[in-house]
Amino acid sequence: MSYEPQQPRPDYRSDGGYGPGRPDPRSAQYQGDPRTGSSGPQDDEKTVAVLTHLSGPIAAIVSVGWLGFLGPLIVWFIYKDKSPFLRAASAGAFNFNVTLWLLNVVGWICIFTFILIPVGIVLIAAYWIMLLVCHIMAAVKASRGEVYRYPMQLPILH
Results as ranks from 00 to 15, higher is better:
A60L: 05
G17Q: 09
Y79R: 09
I124F: 00
C134K: 02
D24T: 08
R35I: 10
Q7W: 11
L157V: 05
S83R: 02
D33L: 05
F94R: 01
E45Q: 14
L123D: 01
Y3S: 11
N104P: 00
G32Y: 06
P57K: 03
F77L: 15
I129C: 04
R144Q: 15
V106H: 02
N97L: 15
G16D: 10
H135N: 13
V50R: 05
H158C: 06
D24E: 12
Q7F: 15
K141T: 06
A126F: 02
P8G: 08
L51W: 13
I74L: 14
S14M: 10
W108P: 01
D33P: 07
K82E: 07
G56M: 04
P155Y: 07
D43S: 15
L73C: 02
S55L: 05
W66N: 07
H135E: 05
T36K: 10
Y30I: 07
L70N: 05
K82Y: 02
L123M: 10
L116G: 04
A88Y: 04
I121C: 00
I124R: 03
S90W: 01
H158S: 09
A138T: 07
T52E: 03
R13L: 08
A88F: 03
P10Y: 03
W128P: 06
Y12T: 01
G68I: 02
L54T: 05
V98C: 01
W101K: 02
W76V: 03
G65N: 03
N95Q: 05
P151Q: 10
D24Q: 10
A28D: 15
V140A: 08
P25N: 04
L132C: 12
F112E: 09
Y150F: 15
M137E: 15
L157S: 04
D33C: 10
G40A: 11
I156E: 02
T36G: 09
L86E: 05
G21W: 12
A93P: 01
Q7P: 11
P10L: 09
I124W: 01
D24K: 11
I117C: 06
W101H: 09
A59T: 13
S14C: 10
C134D: 09
S83W: 05
L154R: 08
A142K: 04
D44Q: 15
P34H: 11
L154P: 06
G68N: 02
W128V: 03
G65R: 00
P84N: 00
C110H: 04
L100Q: 04
A125L: 09
T52W: 04
L70T: 12
F112T: 13
Y148V: 06
G145W: 12
L157D: 00
G32F: 08
R87N: 07
H53C: 12
W76S: 03
I61N: 04
I124M: 00
L154E: 06
L132H: 00
Q6P: 01
D15K: 14
V133N: 08
G71E: 00
Y18D: 00
A91F: 00
F69Y: 11
R9K: 14
L73P: 03
N97Y: 14
S63I: 09
A89S: 15
V50S: 08
D33K: 02
P25M: 08
D43W: 12
V62C: 08
A142R: 04
N95F: 08
A89W: 07
W66S: 11
K80L: 02
A139G: 08
S90V: 06
L116A: 07
P57N: 06
L67V: 11
D44C: 12
G21D: 11
R87D: 05
A49N: 03
